[in-house]
Every structure is written in structure tokens, then in C-alpha cells.
Design a protein around this nucleic acid. Structure first.
Length: 136
DNA sequence: GCCAACGTTGGC
DNA sequence: GCCAACGTTGGC
């Protein structure tokens, strides 16, 4: 089982849009590193949903329901998408600020590679973020 | 709205 | 194959 974090700008595609839709296709990735991560996602992997630009916080958990297949929004066969479904909205969103403030999360891609839109998380990092979401 | 970080493109 | 120029992302 792997753990991931994806970023979306809420005014384009927010967590609420995602929930309304039920199944979300993660399309439009045009970056090789992000694409490679998409291609590595396995069924039932868990994915944190982060709002970039506005909100700047992890808002929910999703999971993979369909592994990588060619991106239907382009003819270019280099790009792939995955399908996700919402699992749960976090009771307390975890802000970028809170993540930055945690010594144990210093090295996660969200901080180190802030521009990467699809990132892998270690289980530890995933658990730390969730503990903040469910703790007080 | 600015700017840093980083990926991509294209000339040589 | 290097590197400058440029575009994009995303935090502030």
C-alpha cells in the first residue's frame, strides 16, 4: 500500500466538487514526475487531497479505484490519469502552516518540491498528517 | 501582484 | 549536450 498527496486549486476543482461528482478522474497532469507517480498508484492506495492557492490545507482522503490509463483529455499518449473516490473529509483540515511547523514533516515533497502536483508520502508522514486531522 | 523554484525549449 | 530564456506553479 502506498500513500499519496494530490494538489488541486479549489476554484478549479475542490474537494466539494469531487464529493459531488463521486468519482474523480485525475486528468491534466503534464509533468513527468507527477505522471510517474500517477503510474505507480495501485488500487486502494490512499490519497490526501490538498487545496493549493486558496485554503492551503489538506482537506480529505481519497482512494484509487482505477489504476493509470491514457489521459482522455489529450491525444498525447505520454500522459495518464487515475480515478479516485472520496473516502472521508477530515474533521480538522491540516494546514500547510501546521505541516511546516512539524519537525517530522520537514522533508515531505509538499515543502521540498512545492510545485509537484502529485507526490508520494511515506506511511509515517501520512500517519502524522492524519493524527493532526483527527486530534484536537 | 510579486517572486522563487523549477521544468521545458531551443540555439549553438 | 550545455545553458540561457522563458513559462508555470504556488506561497506569501
Amino acid at each position: 500500500m502506498n500513500y499519496w498527496l494530490v494538489k488541486s486549486e479549489p476554484f478549479k476543482y475542490s474537494w466539494d466538487d469531487f464529493v459531488k461528482q463521486g468519482v474523480g478522474t485525475w486528468d491534466g497532469v503534464r509533468n513527468y514526475q507527477a505522471r510517474n507517480n500517477l503510474a505507480s498508484m495501485k488500487l486502494d492506495d490512499l490519497v490526501l487531497f490538498y487545496h493549493s492557492n486558496e485554503g492551503l490545507e489538506v482537506v480529505g482522503i481519497a482512494k484509487i479505484v482505477k489504476e493509470a490509463y491514457p489521459d482522455p483529455t489529450t491525444d498525447d499518449n505520454r500522459w495518464v490519469v487515475v480515478d479516485l473516490v472520496p473516502v472521508e473529509k477530515l474533521p480538522n483540515p491540516v494546514t500547510l502552516k501546521a505541516i511546516k511547523a512539524d519537525e517530522r514533516l520537514k522533508d515531505i515533497a509538499l515543502i521540498r518540491l512545492s510545485r509537484l502536483s502529485v507526490q508520494q508520502l511515506k506511511k509515517d508522514e501520512f500517519d502524522i498528517i492524519l493524527s493532526k486531522a483527527y486530534g484536537n
